[in-house]
Measured scan of single mutants.
Amino acid sequence: SSYVCVECNFLTKRYDALSEHNLKYHPGEENFKLTMVKRNNQTIFEQTIN
């Protein structure tokens, strides 16, 4: 599966890399929402900020 930060167009295969991205680029933000999307037999988790 892949993880994408929709706000930044940041894409990674690792959830911990997304967490690091959030700490660096969205410090103090807590209203993240992950949406699971299936595309071409791949699972993509799209992160948006509410």
Rank of each mutant, 00 (worst) to 15 (best):
S1F: 01
S1Y: 03
S1V: 03
S2M: 07
S2A: 04
S2E: 04
S2K: 07
S2L: 11
S2G: 06
Y3P: 01
Y3G: 02
Y3D: 01
Y3W: 13
Y3I: 04
V4Y: 14
V4I: 12
V4M: 13
C5K: 01
C5Y: 01
V6G: 04
E7W: 03
C8A: 02
C8P: 00
C8Q: 00
C8H: 15
C8Y: 01
C8K: 00
N9W: 03
F10W: 12
F10V: 03
F10C: 07
L11R: 10
L11N: 13
L11I: 04
L11Y: 09
T12G: 07
T12Y: 03
T12K: 02
T12W: 03
T12V: 11
K13E: 13
K13Q: 11
K13T: 15
K13L: 14
K13F: 12
R14K: 07
Y15H: 02
Y15R: 11
Y15S: 14
D16R: 07
D16T: 10
D16L: 11
D16F: 14
D16N: 08
D16H: 05
A17H: 15
A17K: 13
A17Q: 12
L18R: 01
L18K: 00
L18E: 00
L18F: 02
E20G: 08
E20I: 05
E20L: 07
H21I: 02
H21C: 00
H21T: 00
H21S: 01
H21W: 00
H21V: 01
H21R: 00
N22L: 01
N22S: 03
L23E: 03
L23I: 04
L23W: 12
L23T: 07
L23F: 11
L23K: 05
K24I: 09
K24T: 09
K24Y: 12
K24H: 05
K24R: 08
K24Q: 15
K24D: 12
K24V: 08
K24A: 12
Y25D: 14
Y25A: 15
Y25M: 13
Y25N: 13
Y25P: 02
Y25K: 15
Y25V: 10
H26M: 01
H26V: 01
H26R: 00
H26K: 00
P27G: 08
P27K: 15
P27C: 05
G28E: 14
G28K: 13
G28D: 05
G28Y: 03
E29S: 11
E29W: 07
E29T: 12
E29D: 02
E29G: 09
E29I: 04
E29Y: 03
E30P: 06
E30K: 15
N31W: 02
N31S: 11
N31G: 12
N31K: 09
F32V: 07
F32G: 05
F32K: 14
F32D: 06
K33W: 03
K33S: 09
K33E: 12
K33N: 08
K33L: 04
K33C: 07
L34V: 12
L34P: 01
T35R: 09
M36W: 05
V37I: 12
V37Y: 04
K38I: 03
K38W: 03
R39T: 05
R39F: 03
N40T: 11
N40Q: 07
N40H: 07
N40E: 10
N40W: 02
N41L: 06
N41I: 10
N41H: 10
N41G: 08
Q42T: 10
Q42V: 10
Q42A: 11
Q42E: 13
T43P: 14
T43H: 15
T43G: 10
T43R: 07
T43A: 14
T43V: 13
I44C: 08
I44T: 08
I44D: 12
I44L: 14
I44W: 07
I44Y: 07
I44G: 04
F45P: 04
F45M: 14
F45E: 12
F45W: 14
E46I: 01
E46C: 01
E46L: 02
E46G: 02
E46Y: 04
Q47I: 00
Q47M: 02
Q47K: 02
Q47P: 02
Q47W: 01
Q47C: 03
T48M: 10
T48S: 07
T48L: 10
T48A: 10
I49V: 14
I49K: 11
I49H: 03
N50Q: 05
